[in-house]
Simulated scan of single mutants.
Amino acid sequence: MHECAILSTRNEHADAANALMIDRFPGKQKVFYSFDSVDDDLCNNYPLDFLNSITPNGLPPHELKVKRNCHVILLRNLDPHNGLCNGTWLVVQGFQNNSIDAEIVNGQHAGKRVFIPRIPMSPSEDLTLPFKFKRKQFPIRLSFAMTINKAQGQTIPNVGIYLPEPVKRCIS
């Protein structure tokens, strides 16, 4: 499975395809929920239900579903010297409440077992949010499907394209 991927134009399309695939993937599922907060929100202007419902670019989802042997992609540079870079593909080998045991499947560190911790993350300069958002979650997302942008620089022998809505043609 590390030699194929579904590419789509938007995160929400990739997330929908990933949700469908993980439900069909064999094995026992574990769901990890993020801890979301807003800096300097003393009056609680942003309810947790709202914060949990958003997934800014570059952040993992609030509800992360994984199963043993499913493929995920790393969203942050955790330890570049040991192969844990943004875009690294991993296979989940096991999980606890605060760590995921995984094996690197691409690059010079392929076959190496690693532990992925939950970490606090903020979106990079997301101009659509009027507040400073933080999410504590595992810095991974399922990689059955991903955006075309996330796949840049990857070597994927077999690719499917998922386009649930028309693609607009831009002429410059």
Rank of each mutant, 00 (worst) to 15 (best):
H2D: 00
E3D: 15
E3R: 09
E3V: 04
E3L: 09
E3K: 09
L7D: 01
L7N: 00
L7H: 02
S8M: 04
R10T: 14
R10E: 13
A14M: 06
D15S: 13
A16P: 05
I22T: 07
R24D: 15
G27R: 05
Q29A: 15
V31R: 04
V31H: 01
Y33V: 04
D36K: 08
D36P: 10
D36F: 12
S37H: 05
S37N: 11
S37I: 03
V38E: 06
V38C: 05
D40Q: 11
P47M: 06
D49L: 08
L51E: 12
S53K: 06
S53H: 09
T55F: 08
P56G: 12
N57R: 13
G58C: 11
L64W: 06
V66M: 09
V66T: 14
R68G: 05
R68N: 13
R68P: 00
R68Y: 10
C70D: 01
H71F: 06
V72M: 09
L74E: 09
R76E: 12
L78A: 00
L78R: 00
D79C: 12
D79T: 02
P80F: 06
H81M: 13
H81P: 01
G83R: 04
G83Y: 10
N86H: 12
G87Q: 08
G87V: 07
W89K: 01
W89F: 04
V91M: 10
Q93N: 14
G94E: 08
F95T: 15
F95Y: 15
S99K: 06
D101Q: 15
A102D: 02
V105H: 01
G107N: 05
G111F: 12
G111S: 06
K112Y: 11
K112C: 09
V114A: 03
F115N: 06
I116D: 00
P120A: 07
M121P: 11
S122G: 14
P123V: 09
D126F: 12
T128W: 07
K132M: 07
R135M: 10
K136G: 02
K136E: 11
Q137S: 08
F138V: 09
F144N: 01
M146G: 03
M146H: 04
T147W: 11
T147M: 07
K150N: 05
Q152M: 08
Q152V: 11
Q154W: 10
Q154H: 11
T155E: 05
T155G: 07
I156V: 15
N158W: 07
G160M: 12
P166T: 06
P166M: 03
P166I: 03
V167E: 08
V167G: 01
V167W: 02
